[in-house]
Design a protein around this nucleic acid. Sequence first.
DNA 1: AGTGTGACACTGG
DNA 2: TCCAGTGCCACAC
Length: 110
Amino acid sequence: MAGETDPFFDRVYAVVRQVPYGRVTSYGAIAKFLGMARSARVVGWAMNQSHGMEDVPAHRVVNRNGLLTGKHHFQGTNLMQQLLENEGVAVRDNQVTDFKRLFWDPSEEL
DNA sequence: AGTGTGACACTGG
DNA sequence: TCCAGTGCCACAC
């Protein structure tokens, strides 16, 4: 069925879906929450597969620096930034403003 | 079966 | 404080 993915990938999507509106998280935070703190890159791969999954707000996932590294992977050039701004998240120079304040850590919040 | 890449993270200088 | 290099795990070729 549509949405059928590997167990690990589904695990990542589950966490991303838990990200509150107007909040952002990092790949490492998700990876760490899944017990794979060193596999933050794999989370990025999972996000790459999440293309088409509206339930997975990949635009809320940024790197530890709050930089929209994956913005280039979205359909629109600034689609990721537009989505974040639409949620009230200020983004400037491909970086989330007050990222530290909007940062949502699943390991603490979830 | 091995090598290379990647939407990252951490440590060292 | 900032820049550079290394490590890590999974997937693609």
